[in-house]
Structures are given as structure tokens and as C-alpha cells.
């Protein structure tokens, strides 16, 4: 079956061009992409991932509050015992990458990441089975 990926835009800023571009690229790469729209709370993201039974979650944040927001996502998933890999992108300064990875986030795509690279890494994260 086709793998399902959730793309969610967290934080209070209203720009989702980047998230939409990634969503479309993943669609074109053959995935079923579920898009949530902007200004999602960590609770909304996790409940959506659960209801849609996705194999991967992509979070985007441009508001600067990515660390607390993404941490909350990871905590909620833990609490619900959901084991879904997470990657993220947005305006993330290089010094935050290690912090995010230590929270359990699989891949971090900072500004200037190529779509090709993102699609490739997504393939690795969702696996083939």
C-alpha cells in the first residue's frame, strides 16, 4: 500500500509556502500526503497523525518556537504510545539541530535544503516494505 505522510505547519506564523512545496514534492514522489494547513498545535498534529495512521510526520515551523513545539509533539506521541518517525524543516538555526535530534527527530532540513535531498531522506525514513 502507498505510504502516508502527514505534513503539518506548527506555530503562529501564517506562511506555508515551504510546507506546501514539500507536500507537493512528496506527492509527486508517489506518497499519499495529508496536509493540515497552518497554525497547528502539537495536540492537533498528534491526533491527526493517529487518525490518519501515517508512516511519517513532517513538521514545519517558521516562528522560532520550534524547540518547545516539537518537543511537545514528541511528548504527546510518547504518551499515546505512537511510534511514528518525525522530520522537520523551516527556519532552524544550525545550532538547534543537535537539540532536535536528541529529542528523537530523525532529520532536520534547514533553509536551503533541496527537495531532492528531502525526498531521498524521506524514502529512507519510511522504509520500503
Amino acid at each position: 500500500m502507498m505510504k502516508r505522510i502527514l505534513i503539518a505547519k506548527v506555530g503562529l506564523d501564517g506562511h506555508d509556502r515551504g510546507a506546501k512545496v514539500v507536500a507537493r514534492a512528496l506527492k509527486n514522489a508517489g506518497y499519499e500526503v495529508i496536509y493540515t494547513g497552518i497554525r497547528q498545535s502539537p495536540e492537533q498534529v498528534v491526533m491527526t497523525a493517529m487518525q490518519e495512521d501515517v508512516s511519517l510526520i513532517g513538521l514545519s515551523c517558521l516562528s522560532g518556537a520550534h524547540i518547545p513545539l516539537f518537543r511537545r509533539v514528541m511528548e504527546l506521541m510518547d504518551k499515546m504510545n505512537l511510534k511514528i518517525p518525525v522530520f522537520c524543516g523551516g527556519t532552524i538555526p544550525p545550532e538547534d539541530v543537535d537539540i532536535l535530534k536528541s529529542m528523537g527527530i530523525k532529520e532536520v532540513f534547514g533553509p536551503g535544503s533541496s527537495l531532492k535531498d528531502i525526498v531521498e531522506k524521506v524514502r529512507e525514513m519510511v522504509g520500503d516494505d
Binding site: 502507498m2 512528496l26 514522489a29 506518497y31 499519499e32 500526503v33 495529508i34 496536509y35 493540515t36 494547513g37
Partner: peptide
Amino acid sequence: TGGALLGDRV
């Protein structure tokens, strides 16, 4: 294209 983009949830 093979994939799907599902956005009704928004």
C-alpha cells in the same frame, strides 16, 4: 503522478 495530496482536513 502516482501520489495524492489530501487537503480536505484543513
